[in-house]
Structures are given as structure tokens and as C-alpha cells.
Amino acid sequence: MGRSSKDKRDIYYRLAKEEGWRARSAFKLLQLDEEFSLFTGVNRAVDLCAAPGSWSQVLSRKLRGHGEKCEGGEEVKIVAVDLQAMAPLPGVTQIQGDITKVSTAEEIVRHFEGQPADLVVCDGAPDVTGLHDVDEYIQAQLLLAALNITTHVLKPGGTFVAKIFRGKDVTLLYSQLKIFFGGVTCAKPRSSRNSSIEAFVVCQNYHPPEGYVPNMSNPLLDHSYDVDFNQLEGPNRIIVPFLACGDLSAFDSDRTYPLQLDAGKEYQYTPPTQPPISPPYQQACHLRKNNLLSKEDSPSSLGPRQSGDQAQAD
């Protein structure tokens, strides 16, 4: 029962497993593509903060679905960037690197043999603190970092898609994105839950301001409210169009479904495609499982000695 309860709670989690996606978020990119035709004419695509790799999977299946070459005869190249290693994906080049480093941008361009990317996507979310103001801030910084590296690798007219939290200062992010892109839309795929503040900005037609030189040494700081330009209160805020995307006849991510989805097909449990790679709490869980956590009740048991931890001087 324990295994199937998550299948029941989340229909897209179950579908992702059944269709071989590494995470349910694959459906979000597919539904965004249904609305915006993101992949048309795309030969070079970058997936930022790619782990566990579901968006790279979508890029791979969609861009090279019917063979190695697309119509133009150009070779399709997909680069996935993440800090942590992820299981290899056929047809996707992995770069284990930091998106705030120039070297990472250079490595991406090297893989494209000097050519800029047609599409940059980012589904990254921070390690959540549970303090929502902090989490929204960190997500905004992640998006700005993704935007910054995008300005290094994206071709003029290219498309940038990123996860955004619709929070207090989201209008500041919109105003920043509008400086770089001709069209900015806030899109919510139907596979993203209604109860989540998550949405996606689809930024089309990249054209940086005149004289803009990409620079990684300073982080892009978020805008501040300006009395004339973008108000804290009132109607003069920059709000970009909202678009819900995905077919209404598709599964509803908020609905709770029975395990038996249709009468003809018996429910069968599918194991996850890709188990999580070394979560932060791995050691703590191992200690708890073996009853090795320090407790007040057992003063005799010594705390675990450090193992393999080291400090190093720079």
C-alpha cells in the first residue's frame, strides 16, 4: 500500500514512471511546447540545473525524435549543466559545473562549436528552507543567474524558459526579463499543480539592450521598485500575460484518481525510473536506521565519530 499511495496522490508522478521519464516535470515542458512550439527549428539546446534529467530527456526525444538530423541537415546538440552528476542520457552532453562561472558558459559554446544556442531551459529549484520569503528570494536569484549565463550563450531571437515562483517581487523579475526579451509570458502547464506557486516564464525573441556586454563577474541583482516604473503597490506594476497551457482533456494534476484508471487495464506498480542521487540527509538517515543518532535517554552511547570529513585551507 505504501508504494502505491504516492501513485494515487499524484497522477503525473505515476505517468512519468509509466512512460519512463525521470521526473514528473517532463510533462511541464511537453505542455509548454504544445502551447509555444518551443522546439521548432531548434538544433542547439541547453538544459540548466538539469538533474535528475527529465527536461534533457524531453529535449532529446523531441529534437532528435526521428533520427539524428533534423530537416536542415544540421546536427542536434543538447547540453545539460548541473552541479551534481546525473545518470548519463544518450545524445545529451553533460557538463558538471556552476552556472555562475564564465568557464561553464565557455564550455557550452565549445560544445556547440562556437555557435550560440537556440533554446535555453531551466527547471532548477533551490534547496528549500521552508521560510517562503527566503525560498522565493533564492529562486529569483537562481533565475537571474540562469538569465545571466543565458545572455552568454543564447542567439538573438532565441528562447529562454525558466521556472519562476509567483511571489511578492515577481513583477521585478518580469521587468528585468522584458529588458532582454521581446515577449515574456507567464505560463502554467496543467501538470503543474494549482496549489503550487510555481509557474514558467517563456521569454521569446532574445534581443539584449544596445551595448550590453555579458558579464559574469557581477551577479545580476534584482530590480528595485521605482515610483514611476514599477510600483510596489497599485496598478502600475509590470505584470506579464498569463497563459495556462496543456490540453484540458489531459490529466488534472490536482485531482486524486483511483488506482484503476480505466476498466480494461489492471493497475501495476512501476518502480521509479531514476532514484534520487545522494540526498543531503543520507548519512543522518543511515544513522537513524541503525539507531546511532545521539539521544538524551542513552547518555552512554557516544556520538558518531567524524568520518571522511576534512577541512582544508585555501
Binding site: R288, L293, S294, G303, Q312
Partner: peptide, 16 residues
């Protein structure tokens, strides 16, 4: 110190 060391790793909390 030039080479600071980790004195102790305290595991006792059930969560973060």
C-alpha cells in the same frame, strides 16, 4: 588556523 579541523560531527536531530 591555516588548517582548521572538524572537531565533532553531531548527529542527533531527526530532521534539518
Amino acid at each position: 588556523d591555516l588548517k582548521p579541523t572538524c572537531l565533532r560531527v553531531l548527529f542527533g536531530h531527526q530532521a534539518r
